[in-house]
Design a protein around this nucleic acid. Structure first.
Lengths: 193, 193
DNA sequence: TGTACATCAGTGAACGCGCGTTCACTGATGTAC
DNA sequence: TGTACATCAGTGAACGCGCGTTCACTGATGTAC
């Protein structure tokens, strides 16, 4: 049953992709190694040929999620010049589509759980957040480097908060209102500062 | 071993208080019925004399947490007149003290987990959020009722997002910067709108 | 290039453990007369 | 008011179950000559 080196590498990537999606969907604690392996079309026994532990999987798949999120935000930002790029990223993130579809954002899906994860996992989350901060800050022209980073942190954490709360409430009207009003409020903030 | 009616009622309250604190500290999934009962100074066997299931405990203790949070915000708001009351509540919530101490806010502690809880639990969370919204909105003078509620929703979800992210990142400097800058940003928003 | 052997990806079953829940039991409290 | 009995809060052990992890085994791949 041994697989070629290429197949092995592909399997590893398949497990990582399945893990990233399953953890975001069901949470870290509630998603078992067997769930992830089944989602990747494998049985649980083979897991430890690819990863040292569940924690290592969480860490690495979180890194993958964060990279994808960064690329998706880069795409939205690069479509428009200057500060309008940030507005586009905000509108994209706080869209109804993002509310309903499997979310690409581990902060919104796992935020409060991540605070209780191992130091290694939290460091991966921190690096991901900082990476998004730099991306947004680079478009907040006319501010000092330090100030633009701080403003970017506020914008991003507000986005995460809005999506987290919108996902939490069972009142659909309230959820859409939170997203719409936060889009409006943050866009004004980006344009005016 | 039977206890008096009064003692029974006190025990129930003790379990609820322990549950609220333990769930916020360790998350809902990771905190077992036995953990809660031990924190209340009891053994797990007696749990079902007081509650129908863990889900019922989660629902009721979440309601308790939300009531306490509302009272604490009411206290901060009532200390100052008009919009300054909202600023005081923001400063209180986004303080370093709140970052470090056992948090009274279930949204910041459990936000992403709550989105995956039972409909009953999510409805309790929704009612709690709406209650805070009304409280904040009542102080956003000069706006229509609908607009003030929407603004309140943005302010609250931004507060939750800032605290969630600040708790998540392993970089202390970044955490304090997020809190400070969000305080500043929201305060300006409250004063100017 | 062909052959013999070592490696190891993946399977399926098992490990110990902790979970939510149930239950027999205890003895103090509450109730009925 | 006093007594006999029913109730039930709390204990401690057990239930089935799913968890993360380990392991014997398989057979195709990789390596050495």
């Amino acid at each position: 049953m041994r697989k070629s080196r290429e197949e092995t590498a592909q399997t590893r990537q398949r497990i990582l992709a399945a893990a990233a999606a399953e953890f975001r969907r069901g949470g870290i604690d509630s998603t078992g190694v067997a769930d992830v392996m089944a989602a990747a079309g494998l049985t649980q026994g083979g897991f430890y040929r690819h990863f040292e532990s569940k924690d290592a999987l969480v860490r690495e798949s979180l890194g993958g999620s964060l990279n994808e999120l960064r690329h998706s935000m880069e795409g939205a930002i690069k479509g428009r010049p200057g500060r309008a790029g940030v507005v586009a990223a905000i509108d994209d993130y706080l869209s109804l589509k993002h509310l309903d579809s499997p979310s690409p954002c581990p902060f919104a899906c796992l935020g409060s759980e991540l605070a209780r994860e191992s130091p290694e996992v939290r460091e991966a989350a921190t690096a991901g957040f900082k990476s998004l901060m730099e991306l947004v800050a680079s478009r907040l022209t006319g501010l000092s480097a330090a100030t633009s980073r701080k403003e970017a942190a506020v914008i991003l954490s507000s986005m995460v908060g809005a999506m987290t709360v919108a996902r939490m409430v069972s009142d659909r009207t309230l959820a859409t209102a939170i997203l719409a009003q936060t889009r409006k409020s943050l866009s004004e903030q980006v344009r005016d500062k």
